[in-house]
Amino acid sequence: MGKIILVTGGARSGKSTFAEKYVAKYGHKIGYIATAQICDDEMEFRVKLHQGRRPSTWDTFESPFDAHEIIKAQAGTHDMFLFDCMTIYISNILSQIENIDEFDRIYDLITGKIYKLIDAIKASPATVVIVTNEVGAGIVPESKLARIYRDLSGLANQLLAEASAEVFLVVAGLPVNLRKLRENI
């Protein structure tokens, strides 16, 4: 049975670097599920940073929309995956929506994708480290789309955390194991 490790934190908190070190330490045959789509110079720069840190022995799978299919197809050949990142994955899906006023449909679409991913991981023999952002700690966004994105990202993080064996919060490059912290309360 597969296992989920969730790594969350703010922008530039060090969560991807921590996740990369985690899979390098515990994985043998590693797959990297890249969700980013290069749409401008900034994203191209970010992708190159991530690519430059990855060992050439890791297999990269680009999956901006259907990552559960990668897990289903590749889990027998990889013992560990790094999924980077959930909030970009959600953004990709939202960017395909024509009418943001259909919140029920959007909610069902996003939660459906999350549940498919969780189910695929649980059915696989692999461990999947999922990187995500904490986007709801700031002010309430002015735009409707930004509020929908924030709400669905927070919901996705809750669903993933509930299904995860371990949950790490990374702040200033320092990981805190939230499950262990919760046990001590």
Rank of each mutant, 00 (worst) to 15 (best):
Y22H: 14
E42L: 03
R54M: 03
G173S: 05
S13C: 06
V167G: 00
I71K: 03
V167S: 05
T57Q: 08
L109S: 12
V176Q: 08
V129F: 08
E142S: 15
L49P: 07
D119V: 05
I5C: 06
G154M: 09
N133I: 01
I110N: 02
E166I: 08
G112S: 06
T60Y: 01
I97P: 01
A172R: 06
G138C: 07
I110P: 03
Q37M: 13
S153Y: 00
G31C: 03
L160S: 04
E162R: 12
L159E: 13
G9P: 04
K48G: 06
D66P: 10
A123Y: 04
L181N: 12
E102M: 15
S91C: 09
I5V: 15
V140E: 05
A156W: 01
Q51D: 13
E44L: 14
F61P: 05
P175K: 13
K116P: 05
K3A: 09
A172G: 06
F18T: 09
L6P: 04
K116L: 15
K48D: 12
G27I: 11
N177T: 01
T57V: 15
Y32P: 04
H68R: 08
A75P: 03
R54Y: 05
D59A: 14
K29G: 05
L6C: 00
D40M: 05
E162D: 12
L82H: 00
G154I: 08
D41E: 15
S153D: 03
S143Y: 08
P125M: 11
A34N: 02
A34H: 07
T87D: 05
K144C: 12
E62A: 03
I185G: 15
A137I: 08
A34W: 00
P64C: 09
N133C: 02
E102Q: 15
